[in-house]
């Protein structure tokens, strides 16, 4: 009895160990591609990006470079949305300090309502592009248009952006990034 169970477990463990070794690199590559894809959506064109996310003000962020010069910062920020946690990636153009683009990374918003924040060409997502943080208070229904019938999602999304901008200020104050 013990012998069979041990034997089966050993064989299975060996099999999985082998599979893990074989798939390790492709998985890492796939993960990396996912991050790069998410970053390229919110940042101006870049060629290299920080391997590991850095941290500032409670937010993870990536620094993107092109030809050795920093072109943008992508800051991940999260808050409670309508249906669970909402994570938004905010890309900031390093040259101007303006918002380049934003993208929701993870959300549990209602399909057809709050989930419209996914739509990259929708009115809600496009309104963020090129905004100057210094000129806006970022308040829903004032300078930010809400998604129809989804005020909570719109507010959560806006809060994420505000948090990311706070984090961006901290990043700029850190001398190590110069």
């Amino acid at each position: 009895m013990v012998l069979v169970l041990t034997g089966v477990c050993l064989v299975c463990a060996a099999l999985l160990g082998g599979a893990y070794v074989i798939t390790k690199d492709p998985i890492a590559k796939a993960d990396k591609e996912k991050t790069v894809k998410a970053l390229s959506e919110v940042l101006p064109a870049f060629d290299t990006v920080s391997e590991e996310p850095l941290e500032a003000g409670g937010c993870n962020y990536y620094v993107a470079q092109k030809d050795g010069a920093v072109v943008g910062y992508a800051i991940e920020s999260k808050t409670g949305g309508f249906g669970g946690e909402l994570t938004v990636m905010v890309g900031i153009d390093a040259k101007t300090g303006f918002i380049w683009n934003t993208a929701p990374l993870k959300h549990g918003e209602t399909p057809g309502l709050g989930a419209k924040c996914e739509d990259a060409n929708g009115k809600f997502r496009t309104q963020w592009q090129g905004l100057n943080p210094a000129e806006h208070a970022f308040e829903v229904k004032k300078d930010i248009d809400a998604i129809t019938a989804s005020t909570i999602t719109s507010k959560a999304y806006t809060k994420c952006v505000t948090q990311a901008l706070e984090a961006y200020k901290l990043i700029m104050e850190e001398p190590s990034n110069e």
């Binding site: 299975c12 099999l15 999985l16 599979a19 798939t23 796939a30 591609e33």
Partner: peptide, 15 residues
């Protein structure tokens, strides 16, 4: 074992 194998394969080749 087969499920874990499947998940590793999916993660690697069809994420």
């Amino acid at each position: 074992t087969f499920v874990t194998l499947l998940q590793l394969l999916l993660k690697a080749y069809v994420p």
